[in-house]
Amino acid sequence: MENYIVRIYRRDAADPHKVAGVFESVEQETENTFTNLNSLVSLLASNGADGDATDAIDTARTAEGKP
């Protein structure tokens, strides 16, 4: 079983896709931020796979359109 904590700090009432928060992996004790649902899903997918945390951050940033 995998355990994560997702904290939502900002929601856009007009656009439910826009959410800002922090994603914590309990077992790996890592913490990443997200600013939309795509980047949250990417973090979740990457943490569940065997890739390391760096891949997860890269994937999330790409989903957000950041370099």
């Binding site: 700090y9 900002r10 800002a20 922090v22 931020t33 600013t35 950041k66």
Partner: peptide, 8 residues
């Protein structure tokens, strides 16, 4: 710094 967003 954390979210690359402006204040609400």
């Amino acid at each position: 710094r954390q979210f690359h967003i402006a204040p609400s």
